Amino acid sequence: MSNQRLYKTIYHLAKVINSSLEPGTVLNGIVEQVSQAMEAKGCFIRLLDNTGQNLQASAYYGLSERYAQKGPVQVANSRLDQEVLKGETVTISDVTKDSRFQYPSEAAEEGLVSLVVVPLTSGSDKVVGVLRVYSASPREFSNEEVDFLNCIANLSGMALENARMFQALKRASDLAKEFHYRTFED
């Protein structure tokens, strides 16, 4: 990945992250920019559900709806994600042959071969999900690419946290307005 493309991607990602406080909009922009910058088949962000037992599809780019909706990744059944949720970066040269990958036959049908997965952390360094980048051919991801993805995952986690806090504040404000309105109407 050239420095010029790296800087251009970071600039576009900063614009995406700062353009909206809607979590879905932010995440969709991130996966598109990352996939294009990495010249990858696709990119996927999966976030932990409230139980911490499943990684749910949150945003994807370059992948089919069928693949994206194949079901939640169950952390207990995915050694790959268990490693990543501990803060490790994992690369796999062939997802159809690696026992850590939960859905190898679905990946083969989708035409996915190599994969890099980095932890998505919130501002508190708590891992809240994973950022996955897939290639359609065998690929060794360089150290620079992995560093880039870790940087983007950290920025994305903070952007997601900001968007979630904004949504919570908006709900609280709406409830306060409703309470105020009902109190003075009665």
Rank of each mutant, 00 (worst) to 15 (best):
K15W: 00
S122L: 13
K8N: 08
E161P: 02
Q74H: 15
A172W: 06
T9Q: 14
P119N: 03
Y7F: 15
S124I: 05
N50V: 11
L131R: 05
A57V: 12
I92T: 06
T183Y: 01
D174N: 09
P138Q: 10
Q69E: 14
A68Q: 04
V75R: 00
Q74E: 09
Y67T: 06
S2G: 10
S122R: 10
L155G: 01
N150V: 06
N154M: 08
E39D: 10
L160G: 02
Q167M: 07
I152E: 01
L13W: 12
N150R: 14
G157A: 08
L85E: 15
T25K: 15
A136D: 13
V75H: 02
N54S: 05
V146N: 00
R5K: 09
Y181W: 06
N77C: 08
V31Y: 04
S99K: 11
L21P: 02
D98M: 04
E161G: 00
D186Y: 02
A14K: 05
A37T: 06
V73Q: 15
V31M: 07
M158D: 04
A168L: 06
N50I: 13
Q56M: 13
G129A: 08
S142N: 10
L27V: 04
V127W: 00
R100H: 10
D186P: 04
L48G: 11
D174Y: 13
R171L: 07
L48I: 08
P23M: 03
G29R: 07
S135D: 15
V116L: 13
L21M: 10
L149E: 00
N162R: 09
A172Y: 07
E83C: 04
K126F: 04
N28S: 09
R139W: 11
S173T: 11
N150G: 13
R164M: 07
S156M: 05
V146M: 01
C151N: 05
P138W: 10
V116T: 12
M165H: 05
L63A: 09
R100T: 09
L155H: 02
R79T: 06
A163G: 08
V146E: 01
S156Y: 00
H180Q: 01
Y181L: 03
Q33T: 11
V95H: 05
L55R: 09
A14G: 10
V26R: 01
V127P: 04
E65I: 15
Y67R: 09
E144N: 12
V84H: 11
D81W: 09
T121Y: 01
T9M: 15
G24W: 01
N3V: 08
Y67G: 13
